[in-house]
Computed example of a mutant assay.
Amino acid sequence: MASGQTSSLQLPSFLHGTFRSVQQKTRRDGSRCGEQYREDGTFPVPRQMLEVAPGEIVVAHEVVDLQREHPAWRLYMVSNVIDGLLDAVDSKNTLPARDAYEAAFLETAWGALYFTLAQMGPVSAERTARRLQAVLRFWEPLQCARYLFKKLGMAHTLEELMVASCDWAMDAWCPLGEVSVRERLEMAAQRMEKATREDCIDAIFREMPRALAHVGELKHWKVVADPDFQRERLTTLDPRSFERVSAACTADLLWLLTRWDRDEVSIATL
């Protein structure tokens, strides 16, 4: 266990309460973070941390937060802190401020889990590796809670939560079925961290069937779905676009497929 880490899970007090109270508290904390970031480029620690009781429910996604008048842990509302932060800084510094906030609070259990689940872009292989490694560092305390994520009424263990949110990472980077979720995440993070461009392309091809199954209607399906076409396009992607898809996240591959289809439509109309 990392130095200073406890076996219990502690979350900032601003994440607990009714939806309205958490909304107000997180917004205030975001403004507070913005003020300090403008002054010295750092962020204040939460004023109060509260221990999550063993087995207590943490709401990890907005779509399952239907009982908003009931007090609950609302992890997903870290997004409201970030909104408050970005409103408080100069518009030219919003991305650096957001990245700095993530880097600072990946060193906490709650920040590690939030940023891993939120998958805020760019979801590059390198960035995803850092997020997964952060969750793995806090694995024991994060196991204390149960999590609501996307499916109503289904309280997940940490292992189930990571499968629900990051199965794409395990399938693309550690396509093994006979080891634990934790071991697969560890191996996936290690491979992402050291990945070459060709390693990323191999991972993208392992995840591409899932992306094709969810992409919907494409005007040039046969062209875009052709592996030779995909490899040619991947090898010629500009560095920024390739970084965006290098982790092989399904959502980013959907963006890539629709972009390729749009390009083919443009060519066809010339």
Score class of each variant (00 low, 15 high):
26 T>I: 02
170 M>T: 14
199 D>W: 04
135 V>I: 12
160 E>K: 15
107 E>I: 05
270 L>Y: 11
93 N>D: 12
190 Q>T: 07
5 Q>H: 10
69 E>L: 09
180 S>T: 15
240 R>E: 10
218 L>P: 03
169 A>H: 05
15 L>C: 08
136 L>N: 09
15 L>G: 07
7 S>G: 10
37 Y>W: 15
49 M>E: 13
264 E>K: 14
175 P>K: 10
65 D>I: 01
35 E>N: 13
103 A>P: 02
21 S>G: 05
131 R>C: 01
165 S>M: 04
182 R>A: 06
78 V>A: 03
50 L>P: 03
238 D>I: 04
158 L>S: 11
85 L>N: 05
184 R>I: 02
162 M>H: 07
264 E>A: 11
113 L>G: 05
57 I>L: 15
33 C>E: 06
105 F>S: 08
78 V>T: 09
59 V>H: 10
88 A>C: 08
34 G>M: 02
88 A>Q: 15
100 A>D: 12
86 L>F: 01
39 E>Q: 15
56 E>M: 04
167 D>V: 08
113 L>Q: 08
47 R>T: 14
93 N>F: 00
257 L>V: 05
54 P>I: 00
222 K>T: 12
246 S>Y: 08
76 Y>P: 04
141 P>F: 04
178 E>Q: 13
222 K>A: 14
22 V>E: 03
190 Q>F: 00
232 E>I: 09
227 P>N: 08
259 R>V: 06
234 L>D: 04
63 V>D: 11
129 A>P: 01
67 Q>H: 15
3 S>E: 12
110 W>E: 09
245 V>K: 07
154 M>V: 15
87 D>M: 06
18 T>M: 04
36 Q>S: 11
240 R>K: 13
135 V>S: 10
